[in-house]
């Protein structure tokens, strides 16, 4: 369990770096997509009976990713760019 758990947490960390470092909305989305795999690894490493959960999670992640992409389209139509800094969406 130690190795998959470590890999999952590393995946979470890598994805987080992607989310925080990405200026481009799609690059941010790549980070999100990576973090979401962490949970899959932990579920899968626990037991094979979690297969149903994993399958549903994969579908849910795909829907969420598609919604973020639709948002990217809306952003691009409004701002002509996907640069988060330029649109001020991520300035606190």
């Amino acid at each position: 369990m130690t190795v998959p758990l470590g890999a999952a947490l590393a995946m979470l960390a890598v994805g987080f770096v992607g989310v925080l470092a990405g200026r481009n909305l799609l690059k941010t989305l790549v980070g999100i997509e990576l973090t979401s795999k962490a949970a899959l690894v932990i579920f899968a490493a626990t037991d094979a009976a979690s297969q149903g959960i994993v399958v549903l999670l994969i579908l849910v992640d795909a829907i969420v990713v598609a919604v973020v992409m639709a948002m990217a389209v809306a952003v691009y139509r409004q701002y002509d760019t996907l640069d988060l800094d330029a649109m001020g969406a991520m300035s606190w």
């Binding site: 979470l12 994805g15 999100i32 973090t35 949970a39 932990i42 490493a45 626990t46 969420v64």
Partner: peptide
Amino acid sequence: GSVLAIVGISLVYA
């Protein structure tokens, strides 16, 4: 946030 929550749930599962 959702991703963090499901990772938390997966830890509970484990």
